[in-house]
Design a binder for these strands. Sequence first.
DNA 1: CGTGGCTCCTGTTAGC
DNA 2: TGCTAACAGGAGCCAC
Length: 272
Amino acid sequence: MPELPEVEVTRRSFADRIAGARVQHLQMGKPLRWPLGCEPADLVGREILSVARRGKYLLIHLDQGLLLLHLGMSGSLQFAQSLPPPGTHDHFELRTSLGVLRLHDPRRFGAVVYASSLDDARSIKLLGGLGVEPLEEGAFDPGAFHRALRQRRAPIKQVLLAGDVVVGVGNIYASEALFMAGIRPTLRADRLSGPRAARLHAAIVAVLQRAVTLGGSTLRDFSSAEGQSGYFQLDAMVYGRQGLPCRVCGEPVKTIRQGQRSTFFCSVCQKA
DNA sequence: CGTGGCTCCTGTTAGC
DNA sequence: TGCTAACAGGAGCCAC
C-alpha cells in the first residue's frame, strides 16, 4: 500500500519526536515477512539517533546497528507517548523513553529487520538492488533515466514498479505519472524517446512531490504516525477511476492487468 | 541476466 | 441477506 510519499509522510511525522529516545522494550506479535534477526532484548538500552528512508524502507539508526522497517501493502505506524493495548494486527512495538512506536499490519507483508550496519549482509540484500531516489537533490537525472530505460524491454509501467531504476513509484503513482506524461503503460521501456523519457522523469517527480505535500494517499487504511489521513486520492487523475470520464478529455478511463496488478489509463490522452 | 509468474496474509467488496 | 471469488497501495524468489 504505502508508496514513497506515504513512507516519507510517515517518517516526517515521527522522526524528530523519536530522535534521542532510549529503547526500553521491544515486543513482536505474529511473524512478519522475515524474522527480526536478533533477540529483542539485545536492543534494550540502545539510543535512537535518526530515522531515514531508502525507497519504501524506513531506517531507524541506533547508536549501534539499525532497524529496517517496511510497511508492505497494509502497514502503518503510530508513535505516541502512550497507546491503547495492542490489537490483533499490531505486530511490532518499540517502547522508548520518548514514546511508543507501533506497527499495525493486517496482511503482514511488512517487515522489521535488524542489521548491524548498512554494509551488513541483511541490509545489502534488502537495499542493495534499489534504484535512485526520485526526490533526492541531484540523484535522479533525466539522461541517466533514459539510458536505463533503453536497457529494458518490459512494459514501462512494470519497469517503474520494479524499483531497480527509480525507487518509490508504486501502483498508484505509476499510473498517475504515466498519465501526466501522456505515455501508454504497455509501451516497452526501450521504445521511449529522449524527450518522452524526460517528460516521464518530470512527471514522476511532480506526482511524488505533490503526494507528499498532500499527506499521501488514503485508499483504505493509510495514516501517518500521528494518525492523519492523506488526500492525494481525492484528486487522482486515473487511479481507481475505471469507467469514469477522464478529467482532461472525458473519455472513460480504462483498466488492464499488468503482472497481476491493475493499471489505469486514458486511451486518448495516452495514445502510445 | 532480464522477464514474467507466484507467493506470502487478512480484510473488503462485487457479483450472483 | 448470504456465500464465494476477486482484488487490495509490495517485492523477493524462482523457473525460463
